[in-house]
Design a protein around this nucleic acid. Structure first.
Length: 90
DNA sequence: CCCATGACTAATT
DNA sequence: AAATTAGCCATGG
């Protein structure tokens, strides 16, 4: 996650592939972030669902959206706009 | 070891 | 385009 450039985002699935070599581990990835070991230190707010939906955030989904917008990412109706533009694929 | 639970996905309906 | 369904994975009881 520390590799995700500012102003960009990635999806759980992508991380899953990077990590476990399979998109099917996406769910497990979520679990990992859910029990986020280092809140604040890790920019876990730059991770969204493959379909663009924001997903969740330990400090509250709203907070997550604010952070993303603060980084220049457009969000609307709980969805990332221009996902293709800001999506970081590693 | 078995079961239930999610910050997920992809495929159907 | 929205709602459902069915796999999938790590974790905790």
């Amino acid at each position: 996650m520390k590799r995700i450039p500012e102003g960009k985002v990635t999806t759980y699935g992508i991380i899953a592939v990077e990590l476990r070599g399979s998109v099917r581990a996406a769910r497990a990835v979520g679990q990992a972030l859910a029990s986020n070991p280092a809140p604040v230190v890790i920019p876990c707010h730059r991770v969204v669902c493959s379909d663009g939906t924001v997903g969740g955030y330990c400090h509250g989904i709203d907070k997550k959206i604010e952070l993303l917008i603060a980084e220049g990412i457009e969000i609307e109706h709980g969805r990332v706009k221009n996902l293709e533009k800001v999506l970081f694929r590693f």
